[in-house]
Amino acid sequence: MVSFEFLDEVKRMNKRQLFYQVLNFGMIVSSALMIWKGLMVVTGSESPIVVVLSGSMEPAFHRGDLLFLTNYQEDPIRVGEIVVFKIEGRDIPIVHRVLRLHEKEDGTVKFLTKGDNNMVDDRGLYAKGQLWLERKDVVGRARGFVPYIGNVTIMMNDYPKLKYIILAGLGIFVLIHRE
């Protein structure tokens, strides 16, 4: 026999309490979402926090480090900075250092990147026929980092089922528990 006693509390609620329960869950999700969107607005980057997924930037960053990015347009990109950029046809942004940079008088730039721990520059990683990155490819520039925290995210990505089980568990917990 499966016992559904834990649902008794939910069954006893009236419709206002039930609606509040759903709203409460919605507000937890919304708060997380709005903090993220707020960070996007403040930093100017579409993804203000990223996790380093490879060892290509060792010893500066290791797999599992959490990076904090900003992407202020008025701030010029310089050689030696660590940028996070997107490449057409790749889902995951890459974190590498700017190796060589050309800037025109009107401010437009094109630049080449390389991972500190890689033997060669990134041209092999770029889209077919692409030799340089441009301003629009940049997601942000690394401004700070927290070691190890990102390992949780990496684990979640490696085992997607774990992620869904945890999320579903938390969601149900919030929905059936009052206050």
């Binding site: 206002r16 609606f19 509040y20 709203l23 919304s30 969107k37």
Partner: peptide, 22 residues
């Protein structure tokens, strides 16, 4: 019910802003 109804309204409006943003 006015006390709880007002709270429900406040919560709903807040959630609407989040949905609009999304």
């Amino acid at each position: 019910h006015s006390l709880i109804d007002n709270r429900l309204r406040l919560c709903s409006v807040a959630c609407m802003f989040a949905i609009v943003a999304l």
